[in-house]
Design a protein around this nucleic acid. Structure first.
Lengths: 113, 113
DNA sequence: TTGACATATTCCTCTTGAGGAATAAGTTGA
DNA sequence: TCAACTTATTCCTCAAGAGGAATATGTCAA
């Protein structure tokens, strides 16, 4: 994973399954790198590199405690994604409403016949 | 864009900015490829390839009308993303609540002094 | 200081993916 | 059938990105 992988693009950051797993693991709370390694059965460099990407995207933060580094979720930085999908939830509902209206209309016709 | 790009992975599909723009453009309703091309100032092959990826992910569907192909949004297939982020909204709120409780506690102490 | 430990980084290889140019394929109208 | 039109596909190149192995960096404990 080259340095350039540390893109601050949140959508890119969460597009990788392993990185989503890491975020999921951090939902339980702060964790050291080693804990993530054992939890997810990934290699240590692999986890470090993914954490770097997540960090660049602002999705995790880090504090040092002794020789360990404790990573913590920063869920607020998922907001761009959240807002983006939210607009489509609206679209989903609109479609539902149309379908609903159509069904109601069909039903009305049925009753009139 | 090789064929292998047609991954049915929704997260990968929406990780590309141009593809998100295409989806956004389709929120207004069904559109022909050419319309997307002019709307977004992308090349025609570029749009076709992105539509292929979006289609493989189930995010758009297509119907032929004469020599044109009309693409339509399938917002329901964004559900995996929506559900995934939703879990983090919960995490955000939890954190907010803790912050709120903490502030209240501080305020209480201030009043007592 | 030295050695064990925890994490980060570098170097490498391989695959994936984006985009351009050219072309193929399907459709319509004359 | 032929020419114009619309979209899809192929071939190519280049950059990005993932992962492994080895190593560097930093920290603690004795």
């Amino acid at each position: 994973m080259p340095l350039a992988a540390a893109t601050p693009d949140v959508f890119k950051a969460i597009s990788e399954a392993h990185r989503r797993e890491i975020l999921d693991a951090l939902m339980a709370g702060e964790k050291a790198v080693g804990a993530i390694v054992t939890d997810l059965s990934l290699s240590q460099p692999q986890v470090s590199k993914h954490l770097r990407v997540l960090s660049a995207a602002g999705l995790v933060s880090c504090r040092a405690e002794g020789r360990r580094r404790l990573y913590r979720l920063e869920p607020a930085h998922l907001r761009p994604v959240q807002e983006w999908v939210a607009r489509y939830e609206q679209a989903m509902n609109d479609r539902m409403d149309r379908l609903d209206g159509y069904l109601r209309q069909l039903q009305g016709q049925g009753e009139r016949q």
